[in-house]
């Protein structure tokens, strides 16, 4: 599994780097074009309906059939979503996400650095454990995680979500970071050591600037994981005060299932931050996504 996911991430990255040299095909491929249009309808129609419904008045969203063009636009649904506490859920999710990203980077980076630079059997054995850890599905551990979190009196707190989320993101993060750190030329370490740099300075002022790209990749990856997480919040939190956005959506559906425009407004809001990242940093988002899909 480890190697497999790794290849996924790497091949995406490589595709981006070298793709530019490829020439366009000679003649247009009509059959493929038609199939792509069919897929466009399949992908586009649900997205169109989500966005359209979120701007339609609650009592009129069905007028003219589901596929009709939007008639009267309103922002009431979004206001209603915020009134029902969704802002709180977004803030909770943002806290969990920020903490997870920082914690993942702080833990994974020194570990990856040691894996590449340290000459120790313990380190290489630990690396193998991380690789094996890639194959462990979170569901297989959820019962003991629940047991541990309740015993640690962390149940129903942001920390309860952050701890296992970070733990399950670590293997891939360590893997991606360590393969990037391997590319730092040995001569640079030697040169800086002669200048009087210790291990920490080598990591901080030499390796870190050179591996910024993969650090961004794993940050996006862990941010997406945390932002979209469902299982850990579902099992490890309970009260509305601690609810994250994914559970908020689910809760909306159970409570106001018939208010489709309101529900769709919440769905649109939940994807909005990621969409903004997609617009401005598409490259990084795609690299991070390539990691997420492995989960």
């Amino acid at each position: 599994m480890a190697v497999l996911r790794q290849e996924g991430a790497v091949s995406v990255a490589r595709g981006r780097r070298r793709g530019g040299t490829r020439r366009a095909r000679r003649r247009p491929n009509w059959a493929a074009g038609l199939a792509a249009l069919a897929w466009l309808v399949f992908v586009g129609v649900p997205i169109y309906l989500m966005v359209k419904d979120s701007f339609q008045p609650k009592d009129a969203y069905l007028d003219g059939g589901p596929l009709s063009p939007p008639h009267s636009l309103t922002l009431d649904n979004f206001g209603q979503v915020f009134d029902s506490g969704y802002a709180r859920y977004l803030v909770n999710t943002a806290i969990v996400t920020a903490a997870s990203v920082v914690l993942t980077a702080l833990l994974a980076y020194p570990a990856a650095y040691a894996i590449v630079r340290a000459r120790s059997r313990i380190v290489s054995a630990t690396f193998r454990i991380f690789l094996a850890g890639l194959a462990v599905p979170a569901q297989a551990t959820i019962i003991p995680v629940y047991l541990m979190i309740t015993r640690m009196h962390l149940y129903d707190s942001p920390t309860a979500i952050i701890l296992p989320t970070v733990a399950f993101g670590l293997p891939l993060s360590v893997l991606v970071l360590s393969s990037a750190l391997r590319d730092v030329p040995r001569e640079l370490y030697e040169a800086m050591t002669i200048d009087g740099g210790g291990s920490f300075r080598l990591m901080w002022s030499l390796a870190l600037p050179l591996s910024r790209a993969s650090l961004t990749t794993i940050s996006v990856y862990s941010a997406l994981n945390a932002w979209n997480g469902f299982l850990f919040p579902l099992i490890l939190t309970q009260s509305p005060e601690q609810r994250v956005q994914t559970l908020g959506l689910w809760n909306f559906q159970n409570e106001f299932g018939s208010n489709v425009p309101g529900l769709m407004a919440a769905v649109v809001l939940s994807a909005l931050p990621i969409f903004v990242v997609y617009l401005f940093a598409r490259r990084w988002l795609i690299a991070g996504l390539a990691g997420v899909g492995g989960k």
């Binding site: 702080l106 833990l107 994974a108 020194p110 570990a111 650095y113 040691a114 894996i115 630079r117 340290a118 000459r119 120790s120 313990i122 380190v123 630990t126 690396f127 454990i129 991380f130 850890g133 462990v136 551990t141 995680v145 541990m148 701890l163 296992p164 970070v166 733990a167 399950f168 670590l170 293997p171 360590v174 040995r186 370490y189 030697e190 800086m192 050591t193 002669i194 740099g197 210790g198 291990s199 080598l202 990591m203």
Partner: peptide, 22 residues
């Protein structure tokens, strides 16, 4: 001669992963 980190550098991540996943 290049300074190399000790095995301790991997301990925080290993402990964290061990406790909450292993």
């Amino acid at each position: 001669r290049a300074a190399r980190p000790g095995a301790l550098w991997i301990v925080p991540a290993a402990l964290f992963f061990g406790v909450f996943a292993g």
